[in-house]
């Protein structure tokens, strides 16, 4: 392993945390059965992606990463509003948040 300047170490640490958040998010999305917590796990993956964008922006001395994160934020807000509305609809139909109540969809 090559020696790093402290800025490079900071960026590498941020990127590793981003990868960690993203993969914890996907593990949670696959294993949780509560629909709301599944959406929470996608937000976790959003956090990882945003962190990676900002760290890469710092690495290249470019602000596009931060600007793109602002757009991600917009999309995440829109997604949360729509997805939670859908969850409420699904809940009203089956009276449960269990995603396996909808498992006939895979047939």
């Amino acid at each position: 392993m090559t020696a790093l300047t402290s800025d490079a170490a900071l960026i590498r640490l941020a990127l590793v945390i981003a990868a960690l958040l993203f993969s914890i998010g996907i593990a949670g999305f696959l294993s949780r059965r509560n629909m709301i917590v599944m959406f929470l796990c996608t937000e976790l993956m959003f956090q990882g992606a945003a962190l990676a964008l900002i760290a890469f922006g710092k690495m290249h001395g470019d602000l596009s990463g931060q600007v793109f994160t602002i757009f991600i934020l917009t999309v995440a807000a829109a997604e949360a509003a729509l997805a939670l509305g859908l969850v409420i609809l699904l809940y009203r139909r089956r009276e449960t948040l269990n995603s396996e109540a909808w498992s006939e969809l895979k047939e």
């Binding site: 790093l4 590498r12 590793v16 696959l30 990676a52």
Partner: peptide, 24 residues
């Protein structure tokens, strides 16, 4: 299965990103 997918994903993403910093 979920943890396995997470681990594989983490190792691949983190390795690529780890290398990327070398050009900084």
């Amino acid at each position: 299965a979920a943890v396995f997918v997470g681990l594989v994903l983490f190792l691949s993403i983190a390795t690529v990103m780890w290398r990327a910093v070398d050009s900084y």
